[in-house]
Computed example of a mutant assay.
Amino acid sequence: MNSIYLFGIASQRNTWLSVRQETITSNIAHANTPGYRARDVQPFAEVLQAVRPDLAASDPGHLRDTSTYGGGDAVTNEAAWHTTESGNSVSIERELVKSGEVNAAFSLNNGVIKAFHRMLLTSTKV
């Protein structure tokens, strides 16, 4: 049986989401630290591009995957958020929006895994 990469990718995405959530909570914790700059992690599409598995073509007639992972979420305009006089660039509102995005992405990721798992169980019932 061939390997199924969906579970590995989903696991990597959950790990990435937990790292992003840690970064967000660190930003919130340093909201009153003078000179602190808000941080964020590299988008998951870029992380996935770095570890993207190549699909095997066992026949010359098979098509090669020439697409690239791209896009992902649009980058927000950082200039739209304020920087305080102390040089701190943390915006609690922005960090809470990011936290909501992480929560939604985690729920979606787990929903896809559960649906795929049910499909595998259904297909293997004898």
Rank of each mutant, 00 (worst) to 15 (best):
L17Q: 09
L17R: 01
S18N: 08
S18E: 07
V19N: 15
V19S: 14
R20G: 00
R20T: 10
Q21M: 11
Q21L: 10
E22Q: 13
E22H: 07
E22D: 14
E22M: 07
T23H: 02
T23K: 05
T23A: 13
T23D: 06
I24R: 04
T25P: 03
T25K: 10
S26W: 11
N27A: 00
N27F: 04
A29S: 00
H30R: 14
H30W: 07
H30C: 11
A31P: 06
A31V: 14
N32I: 03
T33S: 05
T33D: 01
T33F: 11
G35Q: 04
Y36V: 00
Y36G: 01
R37N: 08
R37E: 10
R37D: 02
R37Q: 15
R37W: 05
R37L: 08
A38R: 02
A38I: 01
A38D: 07
A38F: 08
R39W: 06
R39P: 05
V41T: 13
V41H: 09
V41Y: 08
Q42G: 07
F44L: 04
F44E: 04
A45E: 15
A45T: 14
E46G: 05
E46P: 00
E46L: 08
V47F: 01
L48P: 03
L48V: 01
L48Q: 02
Q49F: 06
Q49E: 15
Q49L: 07
Q49C: 08
Q49H: 10
Q49K: 12
A50L: 05
A50P: 06
A50G: 06
A50M: 02
V51M: 14
V51E: 02
R52P: 08
R52H: 03
R52M: 11
R52V: 07
P53A: 04
P53E: 05
D54R: 13
D54W: 01
L55I: 14
L55D: 07
L55H: 13
L55R: 15
A56Y: 11
A56G: 13
A56N: 14
A56S: 13
A56C: 06
A57L: 07
A57W: 03
A57H: 11
A57K: 13
S58E: 15
S58F: 14
S58D: 15
D59G: 05
D59A: 06
D59L: 10
P60A: 04
P60M: 04
G61Q: 12
G61W: 02
R64Y: 10
D65M: 02
D65C: 05
D65I: 00
T66N: 12
T66F: 08
T66P: 02
S67R: 15
S67Q: 12
S67P: 04
T68E: 12
T68A: 13
T68H: 10
T68F: 10
T68S: 14
G70E: 11
G70V: 07
G70H: 10
G71E: 07
D73H: 11
D73F: 11
D73W: 09
D73R: 13
D73V: 09
A74P: 10
A74F: 08
